[in-house]
Simulated scan of single mutants.
Amino acid sequence: MSFAEDFSISSVYVKNGNQQDTYKLSIEATIKMSNEQIEILQNGISLTFSYTFVVEEKVGLVWLEGDNKQTIYDYTISYNALTQQYVVESHKKRRYENFPTLSLALAYIAEPKNMSIKIIDREPNRAYRGGVRLKLDINELPTPLRIPAYLSKEWNLDTGWKYWEFSPW
């Protein structure tokens, strides 16, 4: 099984936000979990997926974050055995969604809409780019499960960075 193909970001859609230098993002990703991860989830252990966004400016030949801090959007998925539904908590929005199947819950996490980022102290005639990555946050696992997860390639779910450039203004 190739986890690189089963855990990736395929598209990032960027549009202007309501305020100057603010942007709304929608993402299309693919999330497929291993049988071990599904079993752990169904046995009551929650899993957290994190989107990390950066805005970098080009200074000379290098890209630097400058005043633009990383923005993180976390989604925690859990299984409710009583209702036999999957629950996804969106930390930033402080919202819970229930899904009858794991595939629907993962699709909700894989295709977030209206995520917001802002470019701080944007300067004219300077190039800016945005980046996003999605990963399974192993640090949120219970302590006894962390060490085996760190040592297993199956648990190292990370899309790597996907970048795009902002058009100059």
Rank of each mutant, 00 (worst) to 15 (best):
Y79F: 14
N35I: 08
D67T: 08
Y96F: 13
V87C: 06
V62F: 06
V87A: 10
E65D: 12
Y96N: 10
Y51W: 11
S90H: 09
Y51F: 13
K58L: 13
I77K: 07
Y79K: 10
R94A: 05
Q37Y: 03
S103I: 03
L41K: 01
T76S: 15
Y79Q: 05
A81P: 01
K93V: 02
E56K: 10
A105M: 08
R95K: 15
E56N: 09
F53W: 14
S46A: 09
V59R: 02
V88R: 06
E57G: 14
S103V: 08
D67A: 15
L41M: 11
S46D: 08
T83K: 10
Q84C: 09
A105V: 00
Y51S: 14
D74K: 15
I40S: 01
L47P: 05
L47H: 10
T83D: 11
A107E: 09
F53K: 06
K93E: 12
Y73W: 07
G60Y: 05
Q42T: 12
A107N: 11
P100N: 11
L47R: 02
L104A: 04
T101Q: 09
I72N: 14
A107L: 11
T101M: 01
I72H: 09
L64P: 01
K32T: 14
K69W: 14
R94Y: 08
T48L: 03
D67W: 09
V62R: 10
E57A: 12
K58W: 04
I77H: 09
E65N: 13
L104Y: 09
V62G: 00
Q70V: 12
D74N: 15
